[in-house]
Write a protein that binds this DNA or RNA. Sequence first.
DNA 1: CCGCAACCGGT
DNA 2: ACCGGT
DNA 3: GCGG
Length: 421
Amino acid sequence: MQEALETLAEAAGFKGNEGRLLSFYRAASVLKSLPCAVTSWSQLHGLPYLGEHSSRVIQVGACHGEWGEWGVLDLVELQETWFESQSESAGMYRKLLELLEHGTCEEVEQVRCSERHQTMKDRLFTQVFGVGVKTADRWYREGLRTLDDLREQPQRLTQQQKAGLQYYQDLSTPVSRADAEALQRLVEAAVRQTLPGATVTLTGGFRRGKSQGHDVDFLITHPEEGREVGLLPRVMSCLQSQGHVLYHQYHRSHLADSAHNLRRSSTMDAFERSFCIFCLPQPQQTALEGAPHPCLTRKAVRVDLVVTPNSQFPFALLGWTGSQFFERELRRFSRQEKGLWLNSHGLFDPEQFSMQLLRKMSSDSWALSTFPQSREMPELRNAHRGAAGLSFDQDSFQTGALPPHGLTCANGAVTSWDSRV
DNA sequence: CCGCAACCGGT
DNA sequence: ACCGGT
DNA sequence: GCGG
Ligand SMILES: Cc1cn([C@H]2C[C@H](O)[C@@H](COP(=O)(O)OP(=O)(O)OP(=O)(O)O)O2)c(=O)[nH]c1=O
Ligand SMILES: [Mg+2]
């Protein structure tokens, strides 16, 4: 049932309905959090996010439902769910489907067909790095059907999409933990060469214990605050000179940017995040001797490198460990229940923006009473040791330029704000 | 009826 | 502004 | 789709 709800969430995403997506994911998460299996309908009553619709999905799965109460949309959704998760335990869905074929036939079949098409095309194009639901949809409506169709129109492709097509096969292959560890050694070597003492932490899905991933995520920092500045460009040049970088996109942060000096230097050099495709040597295992030959094959792998000052490391680790849904819910909880704004740089109190928060956070009791569950999340429990994650110098600082927080500050005072504030 | 995490880059 | 990405 |  959790999978069923997650499939509905995904389907909502394909239709561009972010609200439904969230609700279905939340309902699935609530089920996961239960200490034991749900055996009766009444157990669902009162659980958050298991409202009318989600409950009905479960009700039918448990064979307690009455077909007459079902609307066309519900049936189509359930059918898609069944197709996706057609393992063994899906027998009840099959019954439902066959009943469905008898009853509302014509109309349902029509919707179903179009829906099938929708998902089919989505699967084909959205897999390409740089192609999302909107673009896949548009291309399909324009009559494009195959990857080669896309390759024939290179002038219409973004650089990202070109890379996505070029490395399509490798990038659709899951990344193994062994690959991730090999990449870590590669990155560590480059980092060691650039700034001894800097550390490389495997994060993202692999830190959560996944055995495979769609990419590899790393956090880089240095125990001495400030030493990390300018590190990433040097690491990237190093890796580039070794021929490991197939594609890259650099990101700066408003915080890091304005933190050190306010010269708006477009020095082009001040990026702190690199979002790339690496070329990873694949060990060639000869069947008999098992001695790996170095580098006969190479594989393209998506890699994310993030450099963070040591003071912000707890927040970066928390933010980049995921999952995506966990991060979204945590930030929503922080803002809605605690009135604090959380991102991967820090936790911000919009009232008394910086100084008081620093003091508050310097006590264990504050961290624990604010986030009781943080006992299970060491990086959050220790977050206060890294202070609030606000960087500034004596002249001025921006608490995030306009787009993120809408506030501009100088010497601790708000000097301008935008309409949202 | 409204909000739904919070960012950055390319076109 | 919209779409891509994390 | 759900909660406020
Ligand atoms: C995609 C995404 C990720 N993140 C954070 C949490 C993720 O765990 C982390 C890395 O992103 P991803 O690499 O996209 O996610 P993942 O590592 O958990 O899973 P996968 O195995 O598919 O690589 O970045 C967000 O905060 N928001 C997002 O929308
Ligand atoms: Mg990942």
